[in-house]
Each structure stands twice: as C-alpha cells, then as structure tokens.
Design a protein around this nucleic acid. Structure first.
Ligand SMILES: [Mn+2]
Ligand SMILES: [Mn+2]
Ligand SMILES: [Zn+2]
Ligand SMILES: [Zn+2]
Lengths: 123, 123
DNA sequence: TTATTAACGCAACAGTGTTGCAAATTAAAT
DNA sequence: ATTTAATTTGCAACACTGTTGCGTTAATAA
C-alpha cells in the first residue's frame, strides 16, 4: 500500500499549497527529511506523470505547482504571477492570453510569468 | 577614450546577435578572454543602463538581448521564442499579448517565453 | 603628476541540478 | 515463508550558475 513515501508527501505538499513551491521550500516543509536528490527525482517523476508543472520564475528559480486536468502532455497556457515582495508564485489558471505568431513557429509550451506586487502585499 | 574594454565588447556581441546570448555563449565569443565575474558584472551594468534585458529561458538559463528604446526603466511586454532544437532564444518584439488580471495585481515586469520549434529548424 | 574612480582578476562560497553506484524497501513470484 | 525482482533512497562526486570580498591595475579628474 505504501509506495514511495517521499514522492507522495511531496505531491501532497504541492497539491495543498496555493502557491508554487521551490525545491528548497519543499525540502524545508518535509517532516521526514530526505536527500536533495530524492526530491529532484520525485519532482521529475511527478512532472512526467502529469501531476505537477514547473514554472521558471523571473529570477530563474524553478517552482512547482499542481496541474488540473493534465495527463502526460501538459498544456499550460495560463499566466503566472510572481510577487517581488513575498516571492510567491501563483498560477492564474483563468488567464490565458492569446496572440498570433509569424509563420513557421511551432509552439509546444509556454512559460508566462508576470512580476510585480500581489494582492496580499499591495493591500 | 577606451573605457571598459570587456563591457563594450560584450555590448557589441549582444547588439550584433539576432538571438539572445547566455553568459556561457558570451564567454566563448569573447576574443580577449576575461574572468567569469567580469562578465556577470558587465551584464548587470548593461541592464542597469537600459542597454540589454534578461530573458529567463524555459529551462531557467538566463539569456541577454539588446533593448530597443529602453532607458533605465525597462518595458518588455514582448514575446520570446525558445527553440527546443537549436536552443536559440529570439525576441519577437512585435508580439505583445494583452490580457487583464484580477483586481489587486500590480504588474511591473513580464517574462513571456514560448518554446517549440523555430522557423529555421522547422523548415 | 597625483588623487579618485572604475574595471578587472582571483579566491572563496552558496546554490542548483545531474549522474553513478550501493544499500535499503517494497512488491512479486516461487 | 523464502527468494527474487523492481523501486526507492542516500551518498559522493561533479559541472554549472551567480555572488561577494579584496587587492591590483587601468582610466579619468583634479
Ligand atoms: Mn501554472
Ligand atoms: Mn526580449
Ligand atoms: Zn506578495
Ligand atoms: Zn531552432
């Protein structure tokens, strides 16, 4: 019944978080401390399996958030917001900007991250 | 007359490139080899001065491209395209998607990077 | 020329992400 | 229950990115 303690706990953490979590944040929040590499591997697997997606923050830091309705092929057109005050990254799943590209570009993925001040920090 | 040999040469490299350049690529292209740190510092300065802007690629790699019409306050709403075949990152300065955010979000910067296959590699 | 400022190189460090290998756990088969 | 096979984990090592402090050299100003 119990398989992959760490991976499942990491999945729980991400699922239950309203903001995207970095490797570092995940590491800190894990009760049962585990090796860094274990976390990297778990994140890779979870992405492969379509449970989470990676968001590259404006400063290059990778953060991870739950997918809603992804199988193995991720489709994330939605916008992310990165707060420069509290450093939180949030998925704005409702917001999907559209635009047309010149001929010849084949789009597979998109990473859209706006940065500024989030509602909490600007209140 | 000659001031900041390296910084100026780095600026030239970026200005004359049609794709965004990473720190690594800049380092290789510099004839007069210089210290890694010097390049980082030059890039920071050039950004401060509004000559170049940083694009965070989908894999977290920072790339740098020339600004056209930025002073000290950068304004880059435009889209970037990252080719998964040739790893090139290109500014699509004409393409500026628009969308509206929920109340409370104050946008300062945006990093929009689409990935897929570029016209050259898809031809 | 001399003083001041900016640019540079070097060493050291913290952090991220990857790989290989061996030990430990879990699941499956006998 | 025992043995076997497959996963999961930890650890060491490594390459790479980015930052900081400090002493030195080169450029600009006085
Ligand atoms: Mn998202
Ligand atoms: Mn650009
Ligand atoms: Zn905030
Ligand atoms: Zn290409």
């Amino acid at each position: 019944m119990i398989k992959s303690l760490n991976k499942n706990q990491i999945k729980e953490l991400i699922d239950n978080s309203d903001i995207a979590l970095s490797h570092q944040e995940i590491s800190k929040r894990l009760e049962r401390q585990c090796d860094r590499v274990t976390i990297y591997r778990a994140l890779d697997k979870l992405m492969e399996e379509g449970f989470i997606h990676r968001i590259v923050d404006v400063d290059g830091v990778s953060k991870f958030a739950a997918c809603h309705g992804c199988t193995k092929n991720h489709h994330h057109q939605h916008v992310h917001f990165s707060c420069s005050v509290c450093s939180s990254v949030t998925c704005l799943e409702e917001i999907e900007p559209d635009f047309s590209l010149p001929e010849g570009y084949q789009v597979q993925e998109m990473n859209i991250t706006l940065s500024g001040v989030c509602p909490v920090c600007s209140a």
